[in-house]
Write a protein that binds this DNA or RNA. Structure first.
Lengths: 137, 137
DNA sequence: GTAATTGCTCTAGTCACTAGAGGTTCAAGT
DNA sequence: ACTTGAACCTCTAGTGACTAGAGCAATTAC
């Protein structure tokens, strides 16, 4: 039996976040003490660890909801879990590519200015003029 | 003189977004027609283009506000603009590194499962168990 | 028994927009 | 001049995933 604070420190998820997860139906409402405080069973910890890990990997709450349903049915084909993970992986790689382009662009912009004053600053100039960019964004 | 719709299509910024930028003080309120519709001067277009480009590069609204103040004073030293841009570049590169780690992790997780059913699915297992991960996140 | 800590609910705020309701003005065609 | 339909107006509320704070109650340690 954990209090919410113990669960929080074990799972590395903040107390208000746990209550928030309960609100949106991501975790089940636990039993309460006589004084109305939450008391968790150990399985709440594994559920929360699962959620936290998936969140850390960047999965959305909605994707996690789907995975939790899957997780609850050990006989279901797990193809769907792979689809979710692969979809996320694709998103991730697209995002990385885009950020890398931006990084290149911003590096070019900042290294291009020899001016001391705003009037001739290439950084500000480049920000006002997309045509100097090498890539789409 | 542009209507808000013309400004929108020229700057590639959606109409409600332009009004939002006005609300938060990122662009100046323009003159109005007799019927109370917004009428923009050409300089609103360059301002908006500047904002859009900076947003596309991932700068926050607050950072852009700072840059706009700088932009308005051509005699100021532009060091500050460089500081803002470099700070953002650092953030960007940290983010890229992190996403790459996640991508590696997720790839490893999804390629590790030969099971057909959820009961033995390594994807779901790995999500519940951070200790199998090679990196922090 | 008392004090400190932890817990409770509820509301509102964050960021950068986006969506929708319900009404008004403008520009083009007749 | 008149009509139609697109574009415009304001205002409120919603998004995602939390976070912050107020004001109070329960628990735990000494």
């Amino acid at each position: 039996m954990f209090s919410i604070g113990q669960l929080s420190s074990q799972a590395q998820v903040k107390v208000p976040t746990i209550r928030y997860y309960e609100d949106i139906g991501l975790i089940d409402p636990p039993h309460r003490s006589e004084g109305n405080q939450r008391r968790y069973e150990p399985d709440a910890l594994s559920r929360l660890t699962f959620i936290r890990h998936a969140r850390d990997l960047g999965l959305s709450i909605d994707a996690i909801k789907d995975l939790i349903v899957l997780n609850a049915n050990p006989d279901m084909p797990c193809k769907e879990a792979h689809v979710i993970a692969n979809q996320h992986l694709k998103d991730l790689q697209r995002k990385i590519t885009q950020l890398q382009q931006l990084s290149v662009e911003l590096t070019r912009i900042t290294q291009n200015c020899n001016s001391d004053t705003v009037g001739h600053c290439k950084v500000l100039e480049a920000l006002g003029d997309h045509s100097s960019c090498k890539t789409d964004h």
